[in-house]
Design a protein around this nucleic acid. Structure first.
Length: 119
DNA sequence: CGATTGACGTACG
DNA sequence: TCGTACGCCAATC
């Protein structure tokens, strides 16, 4: 415990920042890896966002990685959810229509952290 | 310790 | 418009 279990801004890493942002994604909304990376100040590190998502399976609490898709709105990481349609099913359950592993009206459901969380 | 991979994105041809 | 190449940082082999 050491003082507190809270997150220390000085302790959080690039990955943990990603986790927090993803957790802030409202239901029925989605975002892209690049948007998160850009919000973190490393737009070119979009790969790291995806890598962070991979680790998201081991972190706690688990982050809604199903709300994070690539720039094309395609569910590139659906294969990581175990079931092939698990990610798609979750998105449809939240009101997001998915077809061919791709989000319909992706731009419409797009949630940009740099806009919603901008101060 | 060095090389390869990875849920992406942008640039160039 | 489509395909290929590069960059970014960390983890894994």
């Amino acid at each position: 415990m050491k003082t507190s279990d809270s997150f220390n801004a000085d302790e959080i890493s690039f990955f943990e920042k990603v986790y927090q942002v993803v957790r802030l994604i409202p239901k029925g909304k989605v975002t892209s890896y690049g948007a998160i990376a850009k919000y973190l100040g490393s737009a070119q590190s979009s790969r790291m966002v995806g890598w962070a998502m991979n680790n998201s399976s081991r972190i706690k609490p688990k982050v809604p990685a199903h709300r994070v898709v690539n720039r094309n709105g395609m569910l590139t990481g659906k294969h990581f959810f175990g079931a092939n349609d698990a990610m798609q099913h979750l998105l449809e359950k939240e009101g997001i229509k998915v077809s061919d592993d791709k989000i319909i009206d992706f731009k419409k459901h797009f949630w940009d952290p740099s806009v919603e969380l901008m101060l």
